[in-house]
Design a binder for these strands. Structure first.
Length: 829
DNA sequence: AGCACGCCGACT
DNA sequence: GTCGGCGTGCTC
């Protein structure tokens, strides 16, 4: 066909047809006829404007080209070709198809997830004028463009279909595309600033006082203001060993008080600079461009290189603060030197300006950041620069796996275990780590997975030799571990040294810290007041009718809640089984810890951080800020308290009861919380205040706890999982998840039940119990047993998939399933 | 995803 | 008698 491209008047041109992908949840591609005029412009990967349905126009992507006219219907013409060059590459298309098959969704949905909004023009898309578009550039616009801007000035925003009406012409996409390129208009999207960068005030000494003589004179001039003098002295002292001095730190070290500092700032002696600060690692990690790897790091580095020779995927298991980032930087440097590209994936929350700055320091403009919270302009810019090779290092969250990479050589997935790599809500429900592994396979690139607490399936893959494994168990530099103490609840109870759930040791530490105006974090991984009610007479416990788990009493609502499905009912005063009124509150939740501590330590001002206290918009942010600014001094919370936070004033961490944390999956929360919390308190230690972690536990668990503390628990944990034959939780080798969603609970329940039966039929045994579908929530079911069967009997994975897909079909034909979906997550290959 | 078509319940 | 609910089917 390609020979016919030339303009030979004597040869009749063959009509071409294109199969296009629409940005919709439709499984088919649609065939359109190419007008002779556009014949030369079409290419796979370019966008075309098509009419779909009665009135809708969409920007669709050419998926395939053919010269065969469809037989069963008359194809519509494409209206226009939007791009001069394909916007997506063949390998991207390949990845899209993989995501579609693997996560069981439609190509259009993958397209939605993969493309920045600008690429997705549709007639309902809203556009608005760019705020700072220079007036002189307006003059250079065409009449129609000018008309649109004029209308936008009045209306604020317009739908693409409004523009159609305004101009009285059908095709406005190319026009809008030009305006977008010129930067005159924006495609509106919700600007979600969910993770606002945290700003911290830093103090700088005015450059007037650079040399020693000037400093001496300055100090002398402050003789009559001793507090201010103290402040300056403290500043000079601090400046000797660090480059950035925060306002709070200076206040703390100098003890000079707010007013003295304010006076110095007013006099212009000190300058204030607001800087973005990482929420996770604090400001002190800003390293220099050149650094030397420690011996341990160097060794790990060599090992990684060695492993990469035989294995495309390597897990770097490195304790917190072991300097994994430096290793990444070394590896990235090397790839860049070879002229290749790198993708550096991070969970969203960790993607702060801090890490960006750090990479920019090393790699300059070759670094691009890609993130869903970035505005569309920036995202398209990154997209284009990745495509043309200007950007060599992409630092990004989840969606960055969809960028048009060229010469991809290395993918780093940092904090590999983070669940936020998995997209849940709209399809495609992809896991960025797994998608990255497949992406790497397409590009024949290497993958480095990094974590202090690897996901158990990753760890298993590494241990079983499927992935390479490199361990880095030595902390880097001056990171000090806090003092860790295990307070035996057994011994303390025996000696009557326990008040409610607090050992004397912990209470003393709390009081001590508070008296020194320091802060405390208490970790209790149970929300609510009491995890279960127990009838003392007959042993009855209220359970959820759907989920068969005990209901948690919430004092704040006065109701019993099911933490599984969200079911609620009024709290009972009388046992429904025996009529006794002797109901006992069994166990502790965060609400109860908060309440009892306020009695035991009246001077404590307590804040609570759990799913319940963070329901409202921004409330998480507010609680964190309040604690950071010391509006309260004790933070009681679930694993949320360890969601990557850096509180400078925290010196005591209390883990209320480690025993409840030994079982999966609390165990994982414990590891990670411990790991991060000890880092917080360890940092306090560096400021000459020894941080302390008090772990309350019964004696029987000490062995395990010590292993956690030593970062030596993964193997033990794997054995645990194996021995206990965890039923409801994922096996660590392969993992299949099924999620069922339905807007009607009853119907959804029926779906799950039927799925269970169908799977039983397909595999000859019961796969899962009656599962609990949720109305607006999605639950995952782990088919442990099924997978055991797969392993044992060699039932092939495709067969499993087939069975599940057939089941889905069954639902479809029975029209039960409107909102049900089945999804499989296994190893990407 | 939209949008039309169509078939049953409370209303001007 | 109609308005409007959303169930179902179709879009090249």
């Amino acid at each position: 066909m390609l020979e016919l491209q030339g303009d030979t008047p004597f040869v009749e041109k063959v009509t071409m047809f294109v199969d296009v992908v629409l940005p919709l949840a439709i499984s088919k591609t649609y065939t359109y006829r190419v007008p002779q005029l556009l014949r030369e412009n079409i290419a796979v990967g370019k966008r075309v404007i098509v009419q779909f349905g009665r009135s809708k126009l969409y920007a669709a992507i050419i998926f395939a080209i053919s010269d065969k006219a469809p037989e069963r219907y008359e194809a519509k013409y494409i209206i226009d070709v939007l791009d001069d060059d394909p916007i997506i590459t063949a390998s991207q298309m390949h990845l899209w198809e993989w995501v579609r098959d693997y996560y069981m969704c439609h190509l259009g949905e993958v397209m939605q997830a993969a493309l920045p909004t600008v690429f997705k023009l549709a007639s309902e898309t809203k556009i608005m004028a760019t705020a700072d578009f220079p007036v002189e550039e307006r003059a250079a616009l065409t009449d129609k463009e000018f008309l649109i801007l004029d209308a936008l000035d009045i209306a604020g925003e317009l739908k693409v279909s409004d523009v159609v009406k305004l101009l009285g012409q059908k095709t406005v996409f190319p026009l809008l595309k030009r305006l977008l390129n010129k930067g005159a208009v924006l495609v509106s999207e919700e600007l979600r600033e969910r993770y606002k960068t945290k700003l911290k005030a830093f103090i700088l000494l005015n450059t007037l006082f650079e040399n020693n003589e000037e400093k001496r004179l300055l100090l002398e001039s402050l003789n009559r203001a001793p507090k201010q003098q103290d402040a300056v002295l403290a500043y000079l002292q601090l400046a000797k060993r660090q480059t950035h001095i925060s306002r709070s730190e200076l206040l703390e070290v100098s003890g000079c008080g707010q007013s003295a500092l304010k006076a110095l700032i007013e006099k212009g002696i000190f300058l204030v600079e607001e800087r973005a600060v990482s929420r996770i690692f604090g400001e002190e990690q800003l390293t220099e461009t050149t650094f030397a790897l420690s011996t341990a790091q160097q060794q790990a580095y060599e090992e990684i290189k060695q492993q990469f020779l035989s294995k495309p995927i390597v897990l770097l298991h490195g304790v917190t603060a072991s300097g994994k980032t430096q290793l990444y930087i070394r590896l990235i440097e090397e790839v860049l030197a070879a002229g290749k590209t790198v993708l550096y994936l991070l969970p969203e929350i960790a993607l702060t300006s801090q890490i960006v700055e750090r990479l920019r320091l090393h790699f300059g403009n070759a670094v691009g950041v890609y993130h869903s919270r970035f505005n569309d302009h920036e995202r398209v810019e990154v997209w284009q620069k990745v495509l043309n090779g200007e950007i060599k290092v992409v630092l990004g969250a989840r969606s960055a796996v969809f960028l048009p990479f060229q010469n991809l050589e290395l993918i780093v997935v940092d904090e590999e275990h983070e669940v936020s790599f998995k997209q849940f809500d709209p399809a495609p429900r992809y896991h960025a780590r797994d998608t990255a592994i497949y992406l790497a396979q397409i590009h024949k690139a290497k993958v480095l997975l990094g974590s202090a607490t690897p996901a158990i399936e990753t760890y298993y893959n590494a241990k079983s030799g499927k992935y390479g494994l490199v361990e880095l168990m030595q902390r880097y530099g001056e990171s000090i571990l806090p003092q860790i103490e295990i307070a035996s609840l057994k011994d303390h109870t025996k000696n009557k040294q326990v008040s409610s759930y607090f050992t004397d040791v912990l209470l003393d530490e709390i009081k001590n810290a508070l008296s020194k105006k320091e802060q405390v974090i208490l970790f209790q991984n149970r929300r609510g007041y009491t995890p279960m009610l127990l009838c003392r007479t007959c042993g009855y416990t209220p359970k959820c009718t759907n989920c068969d788990v005990s209901l948690t009493f919430h004092k704040s609502t006065g109701k019993l809640h099911c933490h599984y499905c969200g079911f609620k009912e009024e709290v009972i005063q009388v046992c429904p089984a025996c009529g006794s009124t002797h109901l006992e509150n069994k166990g502790f939740g965060t609400e109860r810890i908060e309440e009892e501590l306020s009695v035991l330590v009246p001077e404590a001002k307590i804040g609570r951080l759990d799913l319940d206290s963070t329901r409202g918009k921004d409330s998480f942010e507010r609680i964190i800020t309040d604690f950071d600014e010391q509006r309260f001094n004790v933070l009681v919370g679930t694993q949320m308290v360890a969601k990557g936070l850096d509180f400078g004033k925290v010196t005591v961490i209390g883990i209320i009861n480690a025993d409840t944390l030994i079982n999966y999956p609390d165990f994982r929360a414990f590891e990670r919380s411990f790991s991060l919390l000890s880092q917080v308190s360890g940092r306090a230690g560096r400021r000459n205040k020894m941080g302390k972690v008090i772990i309350q536990a019964y004696a029987t668990q000490h062995r395990v706890l010590e292993q956690v503390i030593r970062h030596d628990y993964h193997d033990m944990f794997m054995t645990e999982v194996q021995e206990r034959k965890h039923y409801a939780y994922p096996p660590f080798y392969r993992l299949i998840k099924i999620a069922i969603k339905h807007k009607d609970q009853q119907q959804g329940h029926a779906c799950a039940e039927r799925l269970g039966i169908a799977l039983k039929e397909a595999f000859g045994h019961r796969v899962l119990g009656p599962e609990i579908p949720l109305i607006s929530r999605i639950r995952n079911y782990y088919l442990h047993t099924l997978l055991l069967k797969v392993e044992r009997d060699g039932t092939s994975l495709p067969k499993v998939k087939k069975a599940l897909q057939d089941t889905l079909l069954l639902f479809e034909t029975n029209k039960v399933n409107k909102g049900a979906f089945v999804q499989i997550d296994v190893d990407p290959y």
